[in-house]
Every structure is written in structure tokens, then in C-alpha cells.
Amino acid sequence: MKLTLIAVASTIFTLSLSARAEDMPGMKMDGMEGMQMKQETKRAPVAKAEGTIKAINSEKHTVTIAHGAVPAVQWPAMTMAFSATAEQLTGLSAGDQVVFEFRSEGAKATVVSIKKVK
């Protein structure tokens, strides 16, 4: 009799844990609308390059740079436009030699830092 009661109690306990685990995905989130869930996003690494500014478009916040090969992102030498902030573009003009760091995410490359060499 004792053994039967222990077996029944163990079974009920195990089933209750299983039922609680199944309820978690359907857990009600009432009153939790304001909570922000922290989401891990993997950012593209920063790459470094040197080049010559060919054009600056202040309206579109882009700088076109003819740069050398960038092994960190497996790019050959080329001329391309990078997104940049107005602050980053201050004091720069076409023809300036620059060293810069950028992130490339998909088809978009964004300047992280840029400095005139000469």
C-alpha cells in the first residue's frame, strides 16, 4: 500500500511539472507591455582602410571614397559611398587622403571613424 501511494504521488508530481512546462510558451503577458526584452544582435566587425575622398553628399550623409583593398572584409580596391554623420564629415572635402574605420552590413557600409591624413 505504501509503495502504491509513493508511486501515485510521484506520478502526479511528474505530470504537474510537465503540465507547467507546457504552459510556459502560452504564458499570459498581460501588464508586461512596457517591458523591453533584451535582444542580442551580432554586429558586423569594424574594418580599417585608407583612401581618397572623391565626393561628399551632405544631404544624403554619404562620403564616396576610393580605397585600397580591405582584407578584413575581403574587398578589393574600389570606389564606393559610405554612410556617415554630418559630424564625421565636418572639415573633410574631396581630394583629402583619409584613414577610416567602417562596418559593412549587407549592401550598406557605415563610417565608424574617419580622419584626414594630410
Rank of each mutant, 00 (worst) to 15 (best):
S113Q: 15
P25A: 09
K42F: 02
E22K: 13
E59N: 11
M35E: 14
D30K: 12
A49W: 07
G34Y: 06
P76G: 11
V111A: 05
P71I: 04
E33W: 04
F100L: 07
T52P: 01
D30N: 13
N57L: 07
G106P: 02
E87G: 12
V46I: 12
E101P: 00
G106L: 04
S16N: 07
K54P: 01
T64H: 04
G26W: 02
A21P: 00
W75T: 01
H61N: 15
A107P: 00
E101S: 14
G106M: 09
F100A: 11
K42I: 06
A19F: 03
M78G: 02
A81P: 00
K2F: 12
T4Y: 10
P76S: 10
K28W: 04
G26V: 02
P76K: 10
Q36M: 08
A109W: 01
R43F: 03
I114M: 04
T79N: 08
S16I: 01
A19S: 11
A84E: 02
G106R: 09
V99H: 09
I114H: 05
Q36G: 12
I53Y: 07
E105F: 02
M37G: 06
A72E: 15
A44P: 00
A21G: 05
G68K: 14
G95Y: 09
P76R: 07
Q74S: 12
S18R: 10
R20G: 12
I114C: 04
V117C: 08
V99W: 04
Q97S: 11
S83A: 14
P71C: 09
S18P: 00
S16C: 07
A47S: 12
V111D: 11
P76I: 02
